[in-house]
Amino acid sequence: MASSAASPRSEVRTPAARGVTLIDIASEEILTGEAVALDVQPLGFFLRALGCLIDMVVGVVLLIGGGLLLVTMAASGALPDSALRIGIITLIVLVMVVLPTTVETLSRGRSLGRLAVGGRIVRVDGGAAGFRAALIRALVGVLELWLTLGGIAAVVGMFTPRAQRLGDLVAGTASERTRTRPLPPPAPGLPPGWESWAQVADVSRLPDRLAARVSQFVRGAELLDPAARVRIAGSLADAVAPFVSPRPPADPEAFVRAVASVRRDREYRALVIERERAASLTGR
């Protein structure tokens, strides 16, 4: 699946004698066990930090509320003094470990904070994270989140490609975006005779701003003055050519229309697959 966002890529080529096979995988893409690259957007560092802060604030409120309740019960004699310490320890374990593990497991990687920022915890191969991963993340979180006020998580997250914290590295998880991009606007169909080229064309390196200009042109070309239409088509074809491979010798406008159609179709398929995958993770 091609990604429209520019990102560092690694290429693997077979010897020329056997033909060239190009595997183009973005550094932020998720590679499944079947070597299928999923075009999934990881949740950024600041959004992850904000979601974590929301979850910790909720935890602090629960700790304070539960602690006041236990102290009140002990002061009124409803709770023996010997049980107060046990109650406080139990409350800490419930809020820091049991509650986040349960919520993350039942909600398939979500929490209140991640719902607010549009994120979900998944395995590094893109699959749904289960109870084991949630428990490991919660246990490690006691150290990196609660005991250090998020200091360890922040330092580790700044130096990992997907803003993974220490618990993610241990559990083999990462955070992905759940708010998918809107479907691209419709574009005119592929010009006749370009079907074979469309099957092998690489348009993934086309910058988003340039792609938007191309899409805008092909949707309104019929309304332009003929001379201006030819001039703009030639200018766009020259700008697009360095980012498209292979470029067949053809009329500039036909070339631009073909690029717009291929890119739009691939973006549409990628977004449909992403939405279907998100729906399968949430069980809807």
Rank of each mutant, 00 (worst) to 15 (best):
R284C: 02
Q164D: 08
F131Q: 09
G189T: 02
D39P: 02
V93Q: 00
L115P: 00
A163S: 15
M96D: 03
A74L: 08
L135Y: 02
S175K: 00
V200H: 09
A128V: 14
V272T: 11
E144H: 07
P207M: 03
R18V: 13
D225K: 10
P185A: 09
A174H: 05
A17H: 06
S215D: 13
L69E: 09
G44S: 09
M56K: 14
P15Q: 09
F243M: 02
R277I: 04
P246D: 06
L79V: 10
L145G: 05
E253M: 01
R209K: 04
V259M: 01
G234W: 03
S261N: 07
R269S: 09
M56I: 12
I25S: 15
A198V: 04
R277M: 11
S4R: 04
L271C: 01
Q199E: 14
V259I: 03
F159H: 13
L143K: 00
A171L: 08
L43V: 11
L94R: 00
T148Y: 10
V98F: 04
A198H: 05
Q164E: 14
R179W: 10
L112R: 00
V200I: 15
L50S: 12
R209T: 07
M56E: 06
E28W: 08
R114E: 06
G67D: 11
R114M: 09
A154W: 08
R277C: 05
M73H: 11
V20A: 15
T32Q: 15
G126I: 09
R275K: 12
A250C: 08
P252E: 06
S261H: 10
F159A: 13
W194L: 07
A26C: 12
Q216I: 00
S3Y: 06
G127C: 13
G109T: 05
S107C: 05
V203A: 02
D55I: 04
G59S: 10
E195Q: 12
D238E: 15
L147Q: 06
E28N: 14
E176A: 10
V203C: 03
L70S: 11
L94A: 14
L190I: 00
L50W: 09
D55V: 03
A201I: 02
V156W: 06
D208N: 04
A75Q: 15
S111R: 05
R110C: 02
A163M: 05
M1G: 11
V97C: 02
E104F: 01
D125F: 13
V117I: 08
G157C: 07
D202F: 12
A201T: 06
D225M: 10
I64T: 13
A6F: 14
T101H: 03
R114G: 00
I54F: 13
S107W: 00
V98M: 01
G118Y: 02
I86Q: 12
L223Q: 13
S82Q: 13
R48G: 12
A153I: 02
T105V: 01
L223R: 14
R177C: 04
R123T: 13
A198I: 03
V98R: 03
G67I: 08
V142H: 01
S7E: 14
I92Y: 06
E144P: 07
G220Q: 09
V156F: 08
G66M: 08
V230T: 13
P8L: 09
L143T: 07
R231E: 15
L53Q: 10
